[in-house]
Amino acid sequence: MPDYFHGYTVVGLVAVVGVLFVAFAFLAGRLLRPSVPTPEKLMVYECGVDPVGEGWAHTQVRYYIYAFLYVIFAVDAVFLFPWATVFAADGFGAATLVEMFVFLGFLSVGLLYAWRKGVLTWT
Rank of each mutant, 00 (worst) to 15 (best):
A67H: 03
T96K: 01
L69I: 13
T85K: 10
A74L: 04
F87K: 00
T85H: 14
V102P: 03
M100N: 11
A74E: 10
G93H: 15
A74V: 11
F103E: 03
A67S: 10
A95Y: 07
V98K: 04
F68M: 04
V98Y: 07
M100V: 12
V86T: 08
V98C: 00
V102K: 04
A84W: 06
M100I: 13
P82E: 01
E99M: 12
D76C: 06
V98N: 07
F73N: 07
F68Q: 03
D90T: 15
T85S: 14
E99V: 13
F101R: 05
A89W: 09
S108I: 10
S108R: 03
G91E: 02
L80V: 11
V98M: 08
A77D: 02
A89F: 05
A84F: 00
Y70R: 07
A89E: 15
L97K: 09
L80C: 05
M100W: 12
E99P: 04
Y64R: 12
Y70S: 10
A74Q: 05
V71G: 02
G105F: 00
F87D: 07
T85Y: 12
G91Y: 01
V86Y: 09
I65F: 14
A77S: 05
A95S: 12
F81W: 06
V78D: 03
A74Y: 03
D76F: 09
P82D: 00
A77T: 11
V78S: 00
V86I: 13
Y66S: 06
E99T: 15
F101E: 15
F103K: 00
A95H: 06
A77G: 00
Y66N: 08
T85R: 13
F92L: 08
P82H: 02
A95N: 08
D90P: 07
V78N: 00
D90V: 12
P82Y: 01
F81A: 07
V86S: 02
I72P: 01
V71K: 05
A74G: 00
Y66C: 00
F106R: 06
A84I: 11
L97Q: 15
L80E: 13
Y64S: 08
T96F: 02
Y66P: 00
L107S: 15
F101A: 07
F92K: 03
Y66G: 04
Y70M: 15
